[in-house]
């Protein structure tokens, strides 16, 4: 068992393991990538596009929450800012769409860095509340700057691809984004930077005294995580066509958080799996309406009480059981011979 992050067997190539590509994740990605070959039902595709967006957001959230231990309770606001930025750039400033996306990413990255600066001296619930207050202020701004954002009725944007092309281009674009972000974040978290993040999460003073510049790392972490939110937001508005201040409120953040925690915090891959499983199930049943929120809430409470480490914890437990058994059997057979 050379490294824990590797898949079921210890022989799995380390390079792949460092990119987070355990056998399970590889299979999941291949299956998901091949899905449009088997179905061209637009409804299914749309469900999975939503799932990919949520998965990416949950990964970005997990990057801050699971690694430096600050729960960014205003995450959806950055998603909204990304959406508004890209749409406004494209529509009002006639910037080409890719540049609009880039602008959204750049702005949210800068804002993330600012939030990182704001929370340097804060920890735990204080930092969460700070993020929350900033997000509330952003939300109120989106509502009040009517000339720029269209106020409470929202801002409509142009679509990314022509309607007759269907959902396929969206599907593969957001799939590529999700995969890219997954590889990137896995790479970061397996590098020394990830180690530094974890050290900061445990104790930032101790981390500082062992030579980790915790301010730098906090700011880097926040700007990466917020830039991801901005990117997904920009994709969202050119996919759905509209963004309203209400949709960037806390309910969105809570949903992302639920997905992340159900998947298992501090794992990156847990968020992907839980989103791919839960989002289609819960989004599909439109008649669930309020029950959907209730289910999210209930799942969150149950997970917090009984399985704080989420699905990832469950998988690890099963794996250690299986491996432990295998090891025992190997030991027994060796002893016999």
């Amino acid at each position: 068992m050379k490294s824990k992050v590797n898949g079921i067997s210890g022989r799995w190539p380390k390079a792949l393991g460092n990119l987070g590509l355990s056998p399970i994740m590889l299979i999941v990605f291949v299956v998901v990538a091949g899905l449009p070959l088997f179905t061209d039902n637009p409804f299914t595709l749309r469900l999975f596009i939503t799932a990919f967006m949520t998965a990416t957001l949950a990964m970005g959230f997990d990057f801050t929450n699971g690694y430096i231990g600050i729960c960014n309770f205003g995450y959806a606001a950055f998603w909204g800012v990304g959406a508004y930025t890209s749409a406004i750039l494209v529509k009002d400033f006639h910037v080409p769409l890719p540049l609009g996306l880039l602008g959204a990413v750049a702005l949210t990255a800068v804002m993330g860095a600012l939030i990182g600066c704001l929370t340097i001296r804060l920890g735990g619930i204080f930092a969460s509340c700070m993020c929350w207050f900033v997000s509330l202020a952003l939300l109120a701004l989106a509502r009040n700057l009517v000339d720029l954002t269209g106020g409470a009725s929202g801002y409509s944007a142009t679509f990314m691809f022509k309607p007759k092309m269907g959902y396929l281009p969206y599907y593969y674009l957001i799939f590529a984004v999700m995969l890219g972000i997954f590889l990137l974040l896995s790479h970061f978290t397996h590098s020394t930077m990830g180690l530094a993040f974890r050290a900061i999460a445990l104790d930032d003073k101790a981390a500082g005294s062992s030579g980790i510049n915790h301010i730098k790392y906090k700011i880097i972490n926040f700007s990466i995580s917020c830039a991801i939110a901005g990117l997904v937001g920009a994709f969202y508005i050119h996919f759905v066509g509209i963004m309203t201040p209400t949709s960037m409120s806390n309910e969105k953040t809570t949903e992302i958080m639920a997905i992340c925690f159900i998947g298992g915090r501090g794992t990156i891959w847990g968020s992907v799996i839980s989103s791919l499983v839960l989002t289609p199930i819960l989004e599909q049943a439109k008649d669930l309406l309020e029950w959907r929120q209730i289910l999210y809430g209930l799942l969150m409470i149950l997970i917090m009480i009984f399985y704080p480490r989420g699905m990832a914890g469950l998988v690890e437990k099963v794996r250690s059981l299986v491996l432990g058994k295998a090891r025992k059997e190997a030991g027994a057979s060796e002893a016999q011979s």
Partner: peptide, 22 residues
């Protein structure tokens, strides 16, 4: 514990809000 209670009460608030809506 503290962060767990935070998440737990968030879940609770979701349930209460949607429950009353229902």
């Amino acid at each position: 514990w503290l962060m767990n209670t935070f998440l737990l009460t968030l879940g609770l608030s979701m349930i209460l809000k949607s429950g009353t809506k229902l």
